[in-house]
Simulated scan of single mutants.
Amino acid sequence: MSRSQRLQRRNEKVRTLFDKISAKNDKWRVDAVVADVAKQMYLSTRTVEAILKGEGIYGDEANGDPDQMNFAF
């Protein structure tokens, strides 16, 4: 498995975990969910935010529309 495939898999896992945690804890603020995902995935909160938004090197063609997850942190 190449590095880009591993990173793409990690990014998918971050998005899935974010969806799961936010569904489970619907009263949590977005930054609390991001912090929890960052802690579980051993990433910085800024990296998690960039993955969710598809910013810079974390954006991929499979993500589709860059405004898909347009929310404020």
Score class of each variant (00 low, 15 high):
residue 2 S to E: 05
residue 11 N to C: 03
residue 5 Q to T: 13
residue 7 L to K: 10
residue 33 V to M: 10
residue 52 L to R: 06
residue 59 G to I: 00
residue 4 S to F: 04
residue 4 S to E: 07
residue 61 E to Q: 10
residue 39 K to F: 15
residue 20 K to N: 09
residue 55 E to R: 09
residue 34 V to R: 04
residue 17 L to D: 01
residue 28 W to Y: 07
residue 67 D to E: 13
residue 66 P to T: 06
residue 48 V to D: 05
residue 13 K to A: 15
residue 45 T to Y: 02
residue 69 M to S: 09
residue 23 A to G: 02
residue 29 R to N: 06
residue 8 Q to G: 14
residue 35 A to K: 14
residue 28 W to H: 07
residue 24 K to C: 09
residue 67 D to F: 11
residue 2 S to T: 12
residue 66 P to C: 03
residue 15 R to I: 00
residue 26 D to S: 13
residue 72 A to I: 08
residue 30 V to G: 07
residue 42 Y to R: 11
residue 21 I to Q: 12
residue 8 Q to C: 12
residue 45 T to Q: 12
residue 70 N to Y: 05
residue 12 E to N: 13
residue 63 N to R: 14
residue 43 L to W: 05
residue 56 G to Q: 03
residue 3 R to C: 06
residue 50 A to Q: 09
residue 59 G to F: 02
residue 19 D to T: 14
residue 59 G to T: 01
residue 47 T to R: 11
residue 13 K to V: 05
residue 59 G to A: 04
residue 21 I to R: 14
residue 6 R to E: 12
residue 22 S to Y: 11
residue 64 G to D: 04
residue 1 M to R: 04
residue 62 A to G: 10
residue 73 F to R: 07
residue 21 I to N: 13
residue 52 L to S: 03
residue 10 R to T: 07
residue 40 Q to C: 06
residue 70 N to D: 05
residue 38 A to F: 03
residue 66 P to S: 08
residue 4 S to Y: 05
residue 19 D to H: 15
residue 56 G to W: 01
residue 8 Q to Y: 14
residue 49 E to S: 09
residue 18 F to V: 01
residue 13 K to N: 13
residue 71 F to G: 01
residue 37 V to Q: 03
residue 14 V to K: 00
residue 61 E to N: 10
residue 58 Y to W: 09
residue 73 F to W: 08
residue 29 R to D: 05
residue 20 K to C: 10
residue 1 M to L: 05
residue 57 I to K: 14
residue 50 A to Y: 08
residue 6 R to W: 09
residue 11 N to K: 02
residue 34 V to Q: 06
residue 56 G to K: 13
residue 54 G to A: 00
residue 1 M to W: 05
residue 18 F to M: 05
residue 42 Y to H: 12
residue 1 M to P: 04
residue 8 Q to H: 14
residue 59 G to S: 06
residue 64 G to K: 14
residue 3 R to N: 10
residue 9 R to T: 12
residue 46 R to Y: 04
residue 41 M to A: 06
residue 1 M to G: 07
residue 68 Q to G: 08
residue 60 D to N: 14
residue 54 G to W: 01
residue 71 F to N: 02
residue 46 R to K: 11
residue 27 K to C: 11
residue 73 F to P: 04
residue 23 A to D: 01
residue 48 V to C: 08
residue 17 L to A: 06
residue 37 V to D: 02
residue 72 A to K: 14
residue 16 T to L: 14
residue 54 G to V: 00
residue 18 F to L: 06
residue 32 A to D: 10
residue 10 R to G: 02
residue 18 F to S: 01
residue 13 K to H: 15
residue 64 G to R: 15
residue 61 E to P: 06
residue 33 V to R: 03
residue 50 A to I: 00
residue 54 G to D: 00
